[in-house]
Design a protein around this nucleic acid. Structure first.
Length: 477
RNA sequence: GCCUCUUUAGCUCAGCUGGUUAGAGCGCCGGACUGUUAAUCCGUAGGUCCUUGGUUCGAGUCCAAGAAGGGGCGCCA
C-alpha cells in the first residue's frame, strides 16, 4: 500500500499519473460513481471515481455520508467541470462505517443550534471545519506577529491567588469537600486548610502578571484561557474563553492604540492571505443565509469585502467626551430612539457603540479617555483628574473586541485609586512593589480571541467559534 | 440577573376561531441511473404533537407549572 497523501497537498501540486492513497470522510456519493472525500487538510474535497463493476456492491453500500474510507488509485485529470483532478479508484477500504439510520448528521443544511448539540461531529461539516482551521490560523498568526516583533510569550497562571483582578465573578478552585468544608470559629470557610492554604480562583485575566513581565522583559504577551463566572447569556460571551494580552514597557496610550490597530489588521491579513478557500466558503454561506431575510437587515458588505475594508482604512479614533457629543447630536438621540441615556459619566451602551461604528464612522472605532469612575483601578489617571487613559476598540457586529489602557505607574496615585475603589492593598502587595522598585510607564490591552474569530469568520454566535463552548448551564463534551 | 420567543417525523417547519385518520420539503430506506457537483427521477416507511397537571362533550391548538433551546439587554473580552 502506498503512503497516504493529504488532499490539500495533492491539490496544490497534483502528481498526475501517479498512484496515490488518500483517506478521509465521505461528504457525498453521487450517481453511484463519484465520492467527494475530505480529510480536513483543507476546505477542498477530492473527487474519487469508482467504476461499480469493479467493486463489490456490499462494499459500496458502506460508502455512506461521513463514513471513513481509504482509497488507492491513479490521479488523473478530471473529465467533469467541478474539479481539475480526481482519483480513479483501484482499491477502496472502509476504515469506519457510519450507519445513516443512526447517525446524527445528514447531508443537508442543518442549523447551528442543532449542530452545537452534536459537537463531537460538527467539525466534519464545511462550516465548522472552516471555522476551526481559521481559529488555528489566527492563533498561529498571534504568535508570529509578536515573535517577529521581539515580544516574549509569557505564561501567566491559570490558578490565581488574587481575588481582586477587577474583571468579574470568578470560579473558585478548591479541594475542600463541598458538603462539609472546614470552618473557622465565625462560621466562614477556613481556606487556610485548602490545598494552597488560601482561597484560589481561576484567572479572569493575565494582565497583572503580564505587567511583571513587561517591567523586566520589556515586551511580553500572554495567550491563554480565562474564566468568568458571570451569568452572561449573549452571543458574545463565554464562561471560558481565550485572551491575548500584550503588555509593553515605555508605551503610552497612543502607542497602545497603534499596536492594537496594527495587530488586528495583521491577524485579518494573515487569514485573507492564507485561508482564502475557507473565507470564500464562509462568505458564500452568509450570503445564502441572508437570502431568507429582509433586505434592510442584510449586511451591507460581504464577509471578505468587510475584512478587506477593515484592513485598508485607518480606524476612527475619538475620545469618550467626543463620543458623547456625537451621540447627543445624533438622529436617534434627538428622536428618543436610544433606550439608555447618553450623559457624560455613563458608560457607552451597546446601542451607542453600534451607532458610532455602524452608522457614524462605518468602520472600527477606538474610543479613549473614559471617565475614571467607570473603569478599572489600574488605568492611568489623565491630567484632567476626571478621565483615565483607557481605550476600547469597537468592531461592527460584535462590539468591543479589545479593551486596554496605559497603566498607572505612580505609586501614590495608584494607592489612592485602590482606596477609592475598595481594592485591598494586602492582596496586591506585589503589584504595588512593581511601582515602588524600578517602575516605568507601560501599557497593554486584552483581545478577546473568540470575538476576533467571530469577526473574521462572520459567525453570529460565539459558541460556534470555540470547539467546546462553556456557558451558564452548559458544559457538555 | 432581567425581558422575550420557540418546542409537532431523523432535520427544517406548516397545522386557521378547539372538532373525524396530524401534513410538506429535505434526509433515511428500496428501485433506476457510468460524468455527478446541495446530482436527478420513481416509490415506501417514519409521530410519547417536550413533560406534568388543568379547563372542556372533545386539546397539537386554551390555561398553569416545569424542562430544554434560541434572541435581546446588563456585566465584559
Amino acid at each position: 500500500m502506498t503512503k497516504r497523501v493529504e488532499i490539500a497537498q495533492l491539490l496544490a501540486q497534483p502528481p498526475i499519473g501517479e498512484t496515490i492513497t488518500v483517506s478521509g470522510w465521505v461528504r457525498a456519493f453521487r450517481a453511484n460513481q463519484f465520492i467527494a472525500l475530505n480529510d480536513g487538510s483543507s476546505m477542498n474535497n477530492l473527487q474519487v471515481v469508482v467504476d461499480y463493476e469493479n467493486f463489490d456492491e456490499a462494499l459500496l453500500k458502506k460508502v455512506s455520508f461521513h463514513s471513513c474510507i481509504s482509497v488507492t488509485g491513479k490521479l488523473v485529470e478530471s473529465k467533469g467541470a467541478g474539479q481539475s483532478v480526481e482519483v480513479a479508484a483501484e482499491q477502496l477500504s472502509i476504515l469506519g462505517e457510519t450507519n445513516p439510520d443512526e447517525y446524527a448528521l445528514q447531508p443537508k443544511r442543518q442549523t447551528m443550534e442543532f449542530l452545537r448539540e452534536k459537537a463531537h461531529f460538527r467539525m466534519r461539516t464545511n462550516t465548522f471545519s472552516a471555522v476551526f482551521r481559521i481559529r488555528h490560523a489566527l492563533a498561529f498568526a498571534v504568535h508570529k506577529y509578536y515573535n517577529d516583533r521581539n515580544f516574549y510569550y509569557l505564561h501567566t497562571p491559570i490558578i490565581t491567588g488574587s481575588d481582586a483582578e477587577g474583571a468579574g465573578e470568578m470560579f473558585r478552585v478548591t479541594t475542600l469537600p463541598p458538603e462539609n468544608p472546614p470552618k473557622k470559629e465565625d462560621g466562614s470557610v477556613d481556606w487556610k486548610s485548602d490545598f494552597f492554604e488560601k482561597a484560589t480562583n481561576l484567572t479572569v485575566s493575565g494582565q497583572l502578571q503580564a505587567e511583571i513581565g513587561a517591567l523586566a522583559l520589556g515586551k511580553v504577551y500572554t495567550f491563554g484561557p480565562t474564566f468568568r463566572a458571570e451569568n452572561s447569556n449573549t452571543s458574545r460571551h463565554l464562561a471560558e474563553f481565550w485572551m491575548i494580552e500584550p503588555e509593553v514597557a515605555f508605551y503610552d496610550i497612543q502607542d497602545d492604540m497603534d499596536l492594537a490597530e496594527d495587530f488586528v489588521k495583521y491577524l485579518i491579513n494573515y487569514v485573507l492571505d492564507n485561508y482564502r478557500a475557507d473565507l470564500e466558503f464562509l462568505d458564500k454561506r452568509i450570503k445564502d443565509l441572508e437570502k431568507n431575510i429582509k433586505k434592510e437587515e442584510r449586511r451591507e458588505m460581504g464577509l471578505i469585502e468587510t475584512l478587506e475594508f477593515v484592513v485598508a482604512d485607518d480606524f476612527a479614533r475619538i475620545t469618550y467626551t467626543e463620543a458623547v457629543n456625537l451621540l447627543q447630536n445624533s438622529k436617534p438621540y434627538k428622536k428618543g430612539r436610544f433606550q439608555y441615556p447618553v450623559e457624560w459619566g455613563n458608560d457607552l451602551q451597546a446601542e451607542h457603540e453600534r451607532w458610532l461604528v455602524e452608522k457614524k464612522f462605518k468602520k472600527p472605532v477606538i474610543v479613549r479617555d473614559y471617565p475614571k469612575d467607570i473603569k478599572a483601578f489600574y488605568m492611568r489617571l489623565n491630567d484632567d483628574g476626571k478621565t483615565v487613559a483607557a481605550m476600547d476598540v469597537l468592531f461592527p457586529g460584535i462590539g468591543e473586541v479589545i479593551g486596554g489602557s496605559q497603566r498607572e505607574e505612580r505609586l501614590d496615585v495608584l494607592k489612592a485609586r485602590m482606596e477609592e475603589m475598595d481594592i485591598p492593598e494586602e492582596e496586591l502587595w506585589w503589584y504595588l512593589e512593581l511601582r515602588k522598585f524600578g517602575g516605568a510607564p507601560h501599557a497593554g490591552f486584552g483581545l478577546g480571541f473568540e470575538r476576533m474569530i467571530q469577526f473574521v469568520t462572520g459567525m453570529g454566535n460565539i459558541r460556534d467559534v470555540v470547539p467546546f463552548p462553556r456557558t451558564p448551564g452548559s458544559a457538555e463534551f
